[in-house]
Design a binder for these strands. Structure first.
Lengths: 248, 248
DNA sequence: TGATTATAATGGTTAAACCATTTTGTCCAG
DNA sequence: CTGGACAAAATGGTTTAACCATTATAATCA
């Protein structure tokens, strides 16, 4: 199946050959690659070099490696994991301005909520109802349960992305939300007012989606994100004791 | 909720430590990591294991490795390369439906164009004018210059993302557009009609942005993407000789 | 029969050596 | 003094051989 590896970096050649075999369909998800010591002979290379190649393939999300007898490298069905991870790295290192993040969320979550409203099935509505039950439960417990409330909030956003039935929106939003916690930690100091406002936003949003009202869902999502942003700006203002930056 | 507590793999620990140092700012872009044989002592591991870690870090886009004396591992400024690569893998394995791509573009490019219309400066308008001059030049050359026209089209989209002054929209759109070419190759068979429609779309779009008309810019961008999508569906229909899938 | 233990196959790690590439400095011819 | 050839050194890339850790399966025993 594999031929001798020749290139300036041998491991790269191995990576390319295996990836090509997967993309060509010669290797399908669930298939098991030969054991390392066998592949070493097929590629005519050393085990160290082969393992560097396997490491790259693993990180690409193309294979999964398990220990023990009957273990080894299995071809994996590609998912959005790697895109999410690299997107997350980009966002964390690019020092994205808070304004940009809020603006992006406002636009994208607006789009997603509108799509979700158009496509929500009765089952989706049921999922949202259950989540809102949880949210109300924590809301009624007051600021003590703030963290739990935020987690439910996050799950509601992810659920809306799923309901939108669009894989790209789903993993883009997942990447964004995976990187919001640092912002939360820095800015969010909860109060009963904030908790109540957030809860009402979620009520409006899920109600609009369940009613299939795309325009209202978009407006509710945007209002929710915008409120969140204004609140963070206010906290920043209090923290720095300077005049707030002019809104653009 | 919890991840595995024990780190059975040494190289993963090395990856995590280096990545954390970069994210924490202890290592900045351009900094050079110690030589392999030095790091081996710092991490108290073997060279093979260390190199597996370096391979992963390299593939993550966090470091760049050069040969020879004065070579070694340099910390890299993260770009959209890795996102693009993993996105390309997803698309090549058709894990992402064409409909999702078109829908995402329609929503996001609509948002971006609306923002661009609100924020375009006279200099930005000048940039767009120059690009449209190029586009007209290739348009007048007819279908022969189709590829050149497509390239200008792409630059116009990227310029709009820049004008939107939002870093997230910019790199998300760049990642998407970096992965559109394969779709073009598969589906696009140009004709004078398609060329003209595309040119007119761009005229409408840039005119709206230059005029500062956000709503018109959004509509123009969405119409442009939607037309593109419909055209690809039509080609697919001709190719498969089956009835087109029901629009959702 | 069921629990325990041994076995073997697999990935994970270590160590030491050598090869290939590239920069840098040195030396010699002109 | 200059310029080019060449040697030296530092670095990543590769090989080899052995051992350790994990785990499914087979063998064993109460």
């Amino acid at each position: 199946m594999f031929k001798k590896a020749t290139k300036s970096r041998v491991f790269q050649d191995v990576v390319d050959q295996v990836q090509q075999a997967i993309l060509d369909g010669q290797l399908k998800a669930g298939d098991r690659l030969p054991a390392e010591r066998e592949m070493v002979e097929m590629f005519q290379t050393s085990r160290g070099t082969l393992r560097e190649a396997l490491r790259v393939l693993e990180h690409k999300g193309l294979i999964e490696i398990r220990l023990g007898v009957a273990g080894g490298a299995m071809v994996k069905a590609i998912d959005t994991e790697q895109v999410s991870e690299s997107l997350a790295l980009l966002m964390r290192t690019q020092a994205i301005p808070l304004d940009d993040l809020a603006e992006f969320r406002e636009g994208v979550e607006g789009n997603v909520s509108a799509l979700a409203a158009r496509r929500a099935t009765p089952e989706d509505g049921e999922d949202l109802r259950r989540l809102m039950d949880e949210a109300r439960h924590f809301y009624e417990q007051g600021v003590e349960a703030w963290q739990s409330f935020v987690q439910v909030d996050r799950r509601i956003h992810m659920t809306l992305a799923r309901i939108s039935r669009n894989a790209i929106y789903a993993f883009v939003l997942k990447s964004v939300h995976d990187n919001i916690p640092p912002y939360y930690e820095r800015y969010l100091q909860s109060s009963t007012t904030v908790l109540e406002e957030n809860y009402r936003d979620l009520c409006d949003l899920t109600a609009a989606v369940q009613a299939g009202d795309a325009a209202a869902a978009r407006r509710a999502a945007q209002a929710h994100v915008r409120r969140f942003h204004r609140y963070m700006l206010a906290v920043e203002h209090r923290l720095t004791e300077k005049s707030p930056p002019p809104s653009r």
